[in-house]
């Protein structure tokens, strides 16, 4: 009897039952939507300029940059499925990354995700777009973005197998690094690339120019570079000897 009276207490009226059914239909519909196997990616919206967004941030543009960063990074995940980056519009993506960089000028977040996350695609054009973005960001704030420029050099050389691109990035890194407190090894990457390309004379001239320039003041670094000059000169001499031996034979 007590059970029946309890059941009566929670008995539903017709209108409540109709509402419950309607809500159940809505839930089933939602579950079906989520479990669809082929999820169409939402196109990335047109980027909004940083100056327009700043007005809405109530003076906390760095927080807005962080939120946009999280939103952009999670854009490839929709309805429990991961959409490949290849299906994202990289022009718009670059626009959003630029907006993030302008909203928080002290952060290297946009360069980091460009060189560390969004470059991870098979499409060469998209990879190049991300590398160009890193280059642009580097020229805007060299002291903040130099790490990702160094990363872009390595990726150009080993993943894209484009040593001329790597060399042009390394040249930019060397020129942009002057007087910015960037470690010497980063600005010397051009030397190593020239060495790898077999351009020993160019590498030698570059090291000598860097020393003569007076940009390198650290005694240990100068000693290291002088040793490198000697190694390069020895390599060049041995190359010369080998070629003259071949000619003689």
């Amino acid at each position: 009897m007590r059970l029946i009276s309890r059941f009566n207490a929670i008995a539903l009226t017709r209108s409540q039952l109709a509402q419950l059914l309607l809500f159940s239909c809505f839930l089933i519909n939602q579950v079906q939507l989520v479990s669809k196997t082929d999820v169409e990616p939402y196109p990335l919206p047109q980027p909004i300029s940083a100056s327009d967004l700043r007005v809405l941030t109530l003076g906390e543009s760095a927080i807005m940059a962080k939120l946009l960063g999280v939103w952009l990074l999670s854009y490839d995940t929709r309805a429990g499925q991961i959409i490949p980056f290849e299906r994202l519009d990289y022009d718009r993506l670059a626009g959003w990354l630029k907006t993030i960089a302008q909203l928080d000028e002290l952060s290297d977040y946009s360069s980091m995700v460009a060189a560390g996350v969004f470059i991870d695609v098979k499409d060469r054009q998209r990879q190049l777009k991300m590398i160009e973005l890193v280059r642009q960001r580097f020229w805007e704030k060299p002291e903040i973005n130099w790490r990702w420029m160094a990363q872009a050099i390595m990726l150009s050389k080993y993943r894209l197998k484009d040593i001329s691109l790597a060399l042009s990035l390394a040249q930019d890194l060397r020129i942009g690094a002057q007087g910015k407190g960037i470690p010497y090894w980063a600005s010397e990457m051009e030397v190593y690339l020239l060495h790898d390309m077999g351009e020993l004379e160019a590498a030698l001239l570059l090291i000598k120019a860097m020393i003569d320039d007076g940009a390198i003041t650290d005694a240990d670094e100068l000693r290291f570079l002088n040793r490198r000059i000697m190694e390069l000169e020895a390599s060049m001499q041995s190359n010369q000897n080998n070629s003259s031996n071949i000619q003689h034979n």
Binding site: S61, D104, L106
Partner: peptide, 17 residues
């Protein structure tokens, strides 16, 4: 100008500017 009074970016970048 309340923007100048306090900012979360000081805390984010550990520097007042």
């Amino acid at each position: 100008k309340f923007e100048q009074f306090a900012s979360a970016s000081w805390i984010l970048h550990q520097r007042i500017f």
